[in-house]
Design a protein around this nucleic acid. Sequence first.
RNA 1: UGUCCCAUGGUGUAAUGGUAACACUCCGGUUUUUGGUACCGUCAUUCAAGGUUCGAGUCCUUGUGGGACAACCA
Length: 559
Amino acid sequence: MSDATKASNFIEEIIYEDLNNGLSQDTLRFRFPPEPNGYLHIGHASAICLNFGLGEKFGQPVNLRFDDTNPAKEESKYVDAIQEDVKWLGYKWDNLCYASDYFQELYDWAVQLVKDGKAYVDSQSSEEIASQKGSPTEPGVDSPYRNRSVEENLALFEGMKNGDYGESEHVLRAKINMQSTNMLMRDPIMYRVVNRAHHRTGTDWKIYPMYDWTHGESDYLEQITHSFCTLEFLPHRELYDWFLDQIVDPNKIRPKQREFARRNVSHTVTSKRKLQKLVESGVVTGWDDPRMTTISGLRRRGFTAASLRNFATSIGIAKRDNLVDLNHLEFHLREDLNKVADRVMCVLDPVKLVITNYPDDKVEMLQAENNQEDDSRGFREVPFSKELYIEREDFKEEANKKYFRLSIGKEVRLKNGYIIKGEGCIKDANGNITEIHATYDPDSQSGSGSEASLRKVKGTLHWVSAAHAVPVEVRLYDRLFTVPSPDTDKEKDFMEFVNTDSLEVITAMAEPSVKELEVGTSVQFQRIGYFCVDKDSTEEKIVFNRTVGLRDTWAKIDA
RNA sequence: UGUCCCAUGGUGUAAUGGUAACACUCCGGUUUUUGGUACCGUCAUUCAAGGUUCGAGUCCUUGUGGGACAACCA
């Protein structure tokens, strides 16, 4: 992909340093290790792009590994969804791995640790163990079971494995140091009994390994050279290394854990727990609600995989706390959509416009460019007639110089059509405009090459022919939270910052060509924004999601 | 009251002891049959104070501020 010569962040620097110290480039191997207990979100997307991006940069494999050591929380539906999301993002893994595939190796190594006096069975309650653990500022104390004999430990551990004991009766702990300043080193639990069927191993196992015991050893088994994770795992590194020390063969690759700051995006939350609360409380309609920053939500909203990848690359990677402005994501989204989305005309807030000097029954098919950024997209036909719809906000009876749109006595261009001049309007009893009247210049048709067609007018409006218009449902989404960082407030719960106006559903009038669009297709409603066809669409009614609006400098002037 | 991590414009990253760079946002402008796109321009001497050095964003010290760590979760 890119030439591997220069580090663009501290993560790559670590790799180059290892390469310079003799590590061979063709041994490089990375991994993305999600737990299949929920749906992936934008934060995972960054991690995916980092690890798979490294694989591309160095031309080396990346494994997708499910960290499935907790049968109480994990389900195979998440395994499937995660694979779909990674694929959709455009990446291919080398090996599809499961930590559960390593249960036997892990168990055998654990037995060895017991024999070496490096692990013991503790028979206290979890409360007792917790209280003996001390606190970040106070050292822990040794368990009364810490010095059980190897024989007793072996027998007990085997009993745990065979299902002789219930949950919480015994756990296997590593014998490290209860006085360590690092709480993770205070005799961490390696195994616990769980009486639950695992989504892959069924009831084969009664004991399940903990994260710390599993992760580094899994990396080692897969011969991962660099195991990158978020900063919250930094204190785990000492333990990661300690566990590796117990089993590593010096002739094999010893994996290295390094940490980076998770990347936060403003006006959203990215923890499974919080996303789940949004779903359960009914704030959103599901995990793939277009307002959700899950990958499935973003996909349904109309985000492109390329825009997510470009975003991840452009924001870089470092170790300090960050909150990336949503604008940044939207920039990359518009940048991509501008190139790939065909243009279409759709009026969101219609008001009738009558061209008084246009023949009553005439219908013309006008040629409209599909995408001015891409000639290969060609043209489509749009019907034009005497009665049209335009946006209500595109007409004012009187307007100042800054208003480029239609007003009485002024001219504007109808996109792909004619130049028209405002003549008057009809109002109802409340003073609301119900119909606008204008005259057109028959010689001014777009693309005709006539002198009149080349005249410069300040404004251009989109429109649809009233008789041909297709009513469509449009879901206008706004940011889900009212503040940039909803989950960092010391007093208030993030749910208090939910934007109650994050969805507005309207019926709009679209040009006939939208009937041909397939679910998932993105288009630009000209002068408005990017929209995609939602899966809720039916034969009778097309449903569009607003992905993101166009940049709107007029809104700023008008405000 | 411990251990560890971090600190560069409004935002995110870069600068590997040698003139603070790039992108986004904002603001201003050019082009335009999308008030879109594209293009151009303005906006920081790097948390503070000392020190080392010919030279410090970078190294050292001390502060200040922010963050992580006490699940039989990952």
